[in-house]
């Protein structure tokens, strides 16, 4: 469906994207996730044709659009929803949606279809500035979806919504997009958004694609500590591998196939839990209450600092000594 290989782009002497390649099947909802400035928006703009890659090729539906040729954005069949939405301020909702439909594709019925799909029918004659944030969001998606693009690109589409609205709009839109079986690439730096939406999660750091795969797989088995910490809280402790066993301050774990020598262990904060019959003892030095969950800072006897996260709100008393144990998977890095 869409295939990138060896894509690189630099601005001046500053490399923004280097050697990125991936392929997505039709109907996949992919998420490009990474910290701000990691090059994910630039990658998206190259797929849209708004930037021209320095190296590499992009093919959409089997047609080469970037590489030796450069197909301009207006003839690419790619939809793009901008972070600032970029609705046409002087056009009504219906006119915005109809803008990309020219002649052949049976304009007005398609507009009706889109208005219905995104529940915009009562708002058809409004101007963009008369809409709420969530409504504007839906118009932007309807406008990009109307010409039935081969790929729909979303550039941090929910970034400008306030927190409460954001979750609702996001769920609703993702549900609609999945129903229409559109191939989607969404860029975000919000971990919750990335993990919940992605069929295929692609993590980008410093212009390179570091890991991609199923959300759960990426979350539980990050390829390095950067990816691990980017997707959620965790603890890094030093360890030593000997005879296929890792020894560290948290105990002993199977080393998988890691060679002998020094290593780092990564344990998610929620995979450390309080337990009365544990062999490990830690002192509670601080805690934060978040409502739906809570976290605590712990100090082991040897001075190692750990963080713990638990779903229920009854935190251990600060200053007390508690028993802990590791309850989930442990990742081992070099």
């Amino acid at each position: 469906m869409i295939e990138l290989s060896g894509i690189a782009k630099s601005f001046g002497r500053h490399p923004a994207v280097s050697d990125v390649g991936f392929a997505l099947d039709k109907g996949v909802f992919a998420v490009l996730f990474g910290p701000s400035g990691c090059g994910k928006s630039t990658l998206l703009r190259m797929i849209a044709g708004l930037e021209r890659p320095d190296h590499g090729t992009i093919a959409i539906s089997g047609r080469l659009v970037s590489g030796d040729v450069h197909v301009p954005p207006e003839s690419r069949q790619v939809g793009l929803v901008f972070q600032d939405l970029a609705l046409f301020p002087n056009m009504t909702v219906a006119a915005n949606i109809a803008f990309g439909l020219r002649g052949a594709s049976g304009g007005s019925s398609r507009v009706e279809e889109m208005l219905k799909l995104l529940r915009l029918e009562p708002l058809r004659d409004r101007l963009p500035h008369e809409l709420s944030g969530g409504e504007q969001q839906r118009v932007a998606v309807a406008r990009s979806l109307a010409p039935d693009p081969d790929v729909l690109l979303l550039d941090e589409p929910f970034a400008n919504l306030d927190a409460e609205l954001r979750a609702r709009v996001r769920e609703e839109l993702i549900e609609i997009l999945k129903r229409t079986a559109t191939t989607v690439i969404m860029v975000t730096h919000d971990r919750e958004e990335a993990l919940s939406a992605a069929d295929e999660l692609m993590v980008m750091i410093d212009g390179t694609l570091v890991q991609s795969g199923d959300s759960r797989e990426v979350y539980e088995q990050p390829v390095n500590k950067e990816v691990g910490l980017l997707l959620g809280d965790g603890n890094l402790v030093e360890g030593l591998v000997r005879d296929e066993i890792v020894h560290c301050c948290l105990g002993e774990f199977p080393a998988m196939s890691h060679p002998d020598g020094a290593c780092e262990l990564f344990v998610r904060s929620e995979h450390i839990e309080c337990s009365t019959d544990a062999s490990l003892s830690a002192r509670v030095v601080g805690g934060d209450y978040y409502g739906h969950d809570a976290s605590a800072s712990l100090l082991l006897a040897d001075g190692t600092a750990l963080s713990l996260r638990q779903a229920h709100g009854d935190l251990p008393i600060i200053g007390s000594q508690i028993g802990i144990r590791v309850s989930g998977p442990v990742c081992i890095f070099d």
Binding site: P73, E74, L87, F88, G100, R102, P147
Partner: peptide, 14 residues
């Protein structure tokens, strides 16, 4: 806005 222009481009406008 520059993005409005880009949006129109991705929608196929010359």
């Amino acid at each position: 806005s520059r993005t409005v222009d880009e949006a129109a481009r991705t929608l196929g406008a010359g």
